[in-house]
Computed example of a mutant assay.
Amino acid sequence: MSLEKINIRNSILILIIVAAAATRFLHLGSFSSWTNFTPLGAMAMFGGAYFSDKVKAYAVPLITLFVSDLVVNYAYYQKIVLFYDGAFWVYLSFIFMVLVGTFIKKANFANVLIASVVTVFIHWIVSDIGAVLMVGSMYPKSFAGYLQALIGAIPFERNLLVSNLVYGLLMFGGFEYAKTKFPALSFNKQQAIQHS
């Protein structure tokens, strides 16, 4: 695979991730029963699955998350918030979600479904550590508090699972369809190794 084809492929992958992240801005400032219906889990899985360069696999989704967090936090707090309470745990869970994506070798419904469930579970158990440890937490700083946070997070994680499936099917399905129309988007790891 030529360097030009790799650059076209990477540019399209980045565009898909950024476009998905932009959907976070559709309902800024409003809370609803669909809070946490975001493209974040799907973005992480997608980046992990499709970028051959593992630095890009982690960097592109993480940078996109960070920039979109800046916009979302500004909309809610009317000020720039670089890192919010619990951000470490959310970003750590996001890194693990990208890792899950690296295990998707064939993009099909079953693999995206399994990865979606695994990434939601990771987000649930890791990010809720931050919910317990953050300043002013409504949960006691104990294992019992952590269990309370896990139970309280179930509706949000349900929304994340649905969004992982919806966005995952759109992103993975869209890219797989595009590969059938534009062969330059296809990737052969052996060819890429020969040209690196």
Rank of each mutant, 00 (worst) to 15 (best):
N10K: 14
F182R: 12
S33H: 12
V67C: 03
Y74S: 11
F103M: 10
V18F: 12
N188L: 11
H27R: 14
Y74Q: 06
L161A: 09
I16D: 01
F94P: 01
S30Y: 12
V18I: 15
S163Y: 00
I193K: 15
N188D: 15
I151P: 03
S33D: 08
Y74K: 01
H195L: 14
A19V: 14
N108A: 11
F88A: 10
I8N: 13
G47Y: 03
V90N: 05
M43C: 05
I14D: 13
P183W: 14
A115E: 02
A75H: 02
L40F: 03
M1Y: 15
I114M: 11
F31S: 05
P61H: 02
A20H: 06
L147H: 05
F66P: 00
H27M: 11
V132G: 02
Y77L: 11
E4C: 05
V71Q: 06
I129D: 11
V120A: 07
A115M: 05
F88E: 06
L165G: 07
V117Q: 08
A192T: 09
T180S: 13
M171P: 08
A184G: 06
F25K: 08
L26E: 00
K79Y: 04
F156D: 01
T23V: 06
F187S: 13
V120Y: 02
Y139F: 15
F25M: 01
A131R: 02
L160C: 06
I151M: 12
S196A: 14
Y167P: 02
L99M: 12
S116F: 04
G29C: 02
I95C: 07
Y76H: 11
S68C: 01
L62H: 02
L28K: 10
A75M: 08
I12V: 15
S163W: 05
L3R: 15
S116W: 12
I151W: 15
G86T: 07
H123V: 02
Q194C: 03
G47N: 02
K79R: 14
Y50K: 07
S127E: 09
S32H: 07
D128S: 07
V71G: 03
F187E: 10
Q191I: 03
G41R: 05
N10V: 08
F88K: 02
Y91E: 01
E157S: 08
G47K: 11
Y58G: 00
